[in-house]
Design a protein around this nucleic acid. Structure first.
Lengths: 205, 205
DNA sequence: CCGAAACTAAACTGGATGGTCTATATAAGC
DNA sequence: GCTTATATAGACCATCCAGTTTAGTTTCGG
């Protein structure tokens, strides 16, 4: 989307390095990923890698930030403001669920949680490009819906967060902790219907 | 509580080892904690430590499991079945919030998330002694309240999970990702009141 | 086609760490 | 006081890994 990554770049194999690093970090986490493996995976020599990035940490946060930003944008679209509320909530919830249950989201979530002590800016990045982004989009929609008289909400931000949490409910937690592998369609529908119903009971007109 | 830990134990400095290991693992995670440091922290020689536990992994899951089990029991009490619903929801939410925002909970959550791939049983343990335990207790209460006619719930388990998620909403996430250090009283009240209100709007009579 | 810039493979350094081993010391029961 | 079980310090080993260096090779603009 932005054509060129600003700061530390130079040289033609930059993209290979990033791609290789992404794969390895995603699969193994920060500690687990060895620079040798990243270099091999990227089909690049270690020296080249180190000519781009002064050290492993910087490579890591570069990759992680990039990944957070790109993925969320893709998946967290919210319907146009004029779609009826129930429909909008349902489709948004399904999109969320798709993302939440993806292998990718699970992995990056785990890494961000684990490393957000060592890399404070990483936690922040994840939050902004995930939960916060969606909150903003939902808020914008809710604003319209309130104006239209379809919803009645005092604290719009709160409502947006609540909806997110309701959708995450159970399934995400169970997946993170390896209780289930993938939810069945029935499980998903139960959670989503429950979330929509609850939301409308509270904020519907 | 149980007097003696069953399997791998032998020798009189066992408790010291566990205590030292708990401190170090909690502060540093699995990889970050070196066995030398644990031994030093426990005032025990490395040889002694290895005479109790065949390796670091086993020491780790022993400690982690123990910690999951003990802490949750303490904090996740739910009011007696005859307390009015609104009151019960509010006090339970406050207890949850206390636990969720504690340094301890943050640390162990992070560790369990990070390591539940490497140690599948750990994730399971955490889930059972945390979210699942509370779900069961809430469910039991809700059952009574339904019978009493104070609530009307079809899917009680779902309701219990939903309430938990609503309480966790925003604050827990923000803390995990280092957006905020500790919530203010105002923030807490906003979330909890919002959760209770929403729950009652959906399931109140 | 030449020369600089980018890249490469692989050896190497230095440091950390899990786990073992040995030789010694304390403590308790007899 | 002697025996046995347990604990101790710390040296030691093998492994792994981040990061550097070197000596040689590819790529590509001019």
């Amino acid at each position: 989307m932005d054509g060129s990554t600003p700061e530390i770049k130079r040289g033609r194999k930059y993209d290979q390095v990033i791609a290789g690093a992404r794969d390895v970090f995603l699969a193994q986490g920060f500690e687990g990923a060895s620079v040798d493996l990243i270099a091999k995976e990227a089909n690049v020599s270690k020296a080249t890698l180190y000519s781009y990035f002064p050290d492993k940490r910087i490579l890591f946060i570069e990759v992680a930030k990039q990944e957070c930003a790109s993925q969320a944008e893709r998946a967290l679209q919210v319907d146009a403001p004029d779609v009826p509320v129930r429909e909008m909530l349902t489709t948004t919830a399904h999109k969320m669920m798709e993302l939440l249950t993806s292998n990718f989201a699970q992995r990056i979530f785990r890494i961000c949680v684990a490393e957000s002590d060592r890399f404070p800016e990483l936690g922040r990045e994840f939050y902004l490009s995930g939960p916060k982004l969606l909150e903003d989009r939902l808020s914008a929609y809710f604003e319209h819906a309130c104006a239209r008289g379809e919803l009645k909400i005092d604290d719009i931000e709160l409502a947006a967060m609540q909806f997110q949490e309701l959708v995450k409910s159970e399934i995400f937690v169970k997946m993170v902790f390896n209780i289930i592998e993938k939810p069945t369609k029935a499980q998903v529908d139960r959670i989503i219907d429950g979330a929509v119903e609850m939301f409308l009971a509270r904020y519907g007109v």
